[in-house]
C-alpha cells in the first residue's frame, strides 16, 4: 500500500475549525510544506496544538501571523511576538501548558488514557481550575488528554507504508502526535520502498501514518 499523496489531496483534508497538531520545536522538525499548504488555503479558525509558535516566518509561526488560528495550545510563544500581540489584543485564545505536560497530554490522548497526574505546575497559575489529587502524600494536577483532527508531522525518511525514521533533534513531538490524531500526515525528506527500513530502525510504525508527502510537494 502506497500512502503517498499529492498536494491537492492534502488540501482537501483541511476544514474550518479543525484542531491541528503540528510537530516541531522552534521550527525544527516542523513540516514546512504542509504548514505552508494550510497557510495558503482558505481554512480558518483552527485550533493549533504545537510546542511553540516558532518565529514570524518559520515553523508554525505564519499560521498565527496570517490569523488562521482561533486558539493555540502551546508551551512557549516568546519567539513569535505576533502570538503575544494577538493574545493581549483579545484576537487569539492562548492556552499555555508546561512543555512536559503538553507532551504527556498528547501521549494520553493517543494512548487511551483519561489524563495524567503531574506535579508540574502545583502551586502556580497552571493549577487554576484543575483537579488536584494526592497520591501517597504528594499533590498532582490532573491534566486531560489532547487529541486533534489532523496531525502534521515531519520525519527524515518514510517507507511507502509510513514507517518513520527521524533525524537528530527534529524528532521532538512528532512520534507523540502520530498517536493522537484522526488523520496523520507526514512530510518526509526521502521516501523508500517497503522493506528498505529495518524494523529495528523504525521509530513510528506505519500503522499510525495515513498520508505521506515528500518535502516540497513532489514525489
Amino acid at each position: 500500500m502506497d500512502k503517498s499523496i499529492t498536494m491537492e489531496e492534502v488540501l482537501s483534508i483541511f476544514k474550518d475549525e479543525m484542531t491541528i497538531m503540528v510537530g516541531g520545536f522552534m521550527g525544527v522538525g516542523t513540516p514546512e510544506t504542509l504548514v505552508s499548504a494550510v497557510d495558503q488555503s482558505d481554512v480558518k479558525d483552527i485550533t493549533l496544538i504545537a510546542n511553540d509558535t516558532a518565529f514570524i516566518e518559520t515553523g508554525v509561526g505564519p499560521l498565527v501571523v496570517n490569523k488562521k488560528c482561533k486558539k493555540v495550545i502551546t508551551s512557549h510563544i516568546g519567539t513569535n511576538p505576533e502570538t503575544g500581540r494577538q493574545m493581549i489584543a483579545g484576537e487569539l485564545d492562548v492556552e499555555l501548558v508546561p512543555q512536559g505536560t503538553l507532551a504527556e497530554r498528547i501521549r494520553a490522548g493517543g494512548s487511551g488514557l483519561g489524563g495524567i497526574l503531574t506535579p508540574t505546575g502545583v502551586g502556580t497559575a497552571v493549577e487554576e481550575g484543575k483537579e488536584k489529587i494526592k497520591v501517597d502524600g504528594r499533590e498532582y494536577l490532573l491534566e486531560k488528554p489532547l487529541r486533534a483532527d489532523v496531525a502534521l508531522l515531519k520525519a527524515f525518511k518514510a517507507d511507502k507504508a509510513g514507517n518513520l525514521v527521524y533525524h537528530s533533534s527534529a524528532r521532538n513531538f512528532n512520534p507523540l502526535m502520530a498517536m493522537a490524531a484522526d488523520t496523520v500526515i507526514v512530510e518526509v525528506e526521502h521516501i523508500v520502498e517497503v522493506g528498505e527500513i529495518a524494523p529495528d530502525e523504525v521509530i513510528t510504525p506505519g500503522i499510525l501514518v495515513d498520508k505521506i508527502i515528500v518535502q516540497g510537494g513532489n514525489h
Binding site: 511553540d52 502551546t74 508551551s75 512557549h76 510563544i77 516568546g78 519567539t79 503575544g84 493574545m87 493581549i88 499555555l96 508546561p98 512543555q99 512536559g100 505536560t101 506535579p119 508540574t120 505546575g121 502545583v122 502556580t124 497552571v126
Partner: peptide, 15 residues
C-alpha cells in the same frame, strides 16, 4: 508586559 510562556521551565524546577 511579557508572556513568553513557561516552555520546559516548570517541569525542570519540579523534576
Amino acid at each position: 508586559k511579557m508572556v513568553p510562556g513557561m516552555g520546559g521551565a516548570m517541569d525542570l524546577v519540579t523534576g
